[in-house]
């Protein structure tokens, strides 16, 4: 089991939550889990596109009230 980190990107519209995810991803290693909280609606298509193009794993993507919660597993680092 890797480490788990939560990234709070709520209230972040510009630059969006991907900016915070990028910082957390740099620190992470394969097997780690990153949870991202966001309120920017653009984050839903963005995280899907990010997962698709980077080849990491999306474990969960949910919206509860105004808050989007994505959980990813880091799998695509060399």
């Amino acid at each position: 089991m890797g480490d788990k980190k939560t990234v709070d990107a709520r209230g972040m519209a510009c630059p969006g939550p991907i900016a915070k995810l990028t910082r957390a991803y740099r620190e992470a290693k394969n097997g780690d889990v990153i949870e991202i909280l966001a309120t920017d609606q653009g984050f839903i298509p963005d995280i899907k596109a990010w997962i698709e193009s980077t080849g990491n794993k999306l474990i969960e993507l949910k919206q509860d009230g105004g808050v989007i919660r994505a959980v990813i597993e880091v799998t695509a680092k060399k």
Partner: peptide
């Protein structure tokens, strides 16, 4: 560029 689009907003 690190985000999935060429700017952070689609």
């Amino acid at each position: 560029y690190p985000s999935p689009h060429i700017y952070t907003e689609a």
